[in-house]
Simulated scan of single mutants.
Amino acid sequence: MRSKTASIPYGIWMAIFIVVPMILVVIFAFTDKSGRFTLENIAAVGQYSNVFLRSIWLGAIATGICLLVGYPLAYIISRTGARVQSVLVMLVMLPMWMNFLLRTYAWMTLLEDNGIINTALATLGLPKLHMINTSGAVVLGMVYNYIPYMILPLYSALAKMDHSVIEAAQDLGANQRRVFMKVIFPLSMPGVISGITMVFVPAVSTFIISKMLGGGSNLLIGDLIDMQFLGSAYNPNLGSAISLVLMVLILICMGIMNQFDDGETRGGGLMI
Rank of each mutant, 00 (worst) to 15 (best):
Q85V: 04
A233L: 14
N258I: 00
D113H: 11
R266M: 09
V245C: 09
G81H: 04
I209Q: 12
A15M: 11
G70Q: 11
G195M: 04
L251W: 06
T119L: 04
I8C: 00
P186N: 04
T80M: 10
P95D: 01
C66W: 10
L213E: 05
L121E: 10
I151H: 07
G222F: 10
R178W: 01
G11S: 03
G64S: 13
I23L: 14
V179S: 03
Y144P: 02
F28G: 00
N175H: 10
E167L: 08
L154Q: 07
F17W: 15
F229N: 11
G81P: 10
L230P: 03
G125P: 13
V92L: 00
V92C: 01
A203Q: 03
I256K: 02
C253K: 02
G216V: 05
M212Y: 14
A159L: 11
M254T: 11
I132W: 03
G81M: 05
M181D: 08
S240K: 07
L39V: 08
I272W: 03
F37I: 11
V248A: 15
L68P: 13
P9A: 05
S217T: 14
S194D: 04
C253N: 01
D261E: 14
Q228S: 12
Q85I: 06
M142Q: 03
G115H: 12
I147F: 01
L58S: 02
G59C: 12
S135F: 00
S3K: 13
M161N: 05
I61A: 02
K211H: 08
I151Y: 02
L129I: 15
L126H: 04
P236N: 01
R36K: 08
I56R: 02
V179F: 07
V183T: 15
V201Q: 07
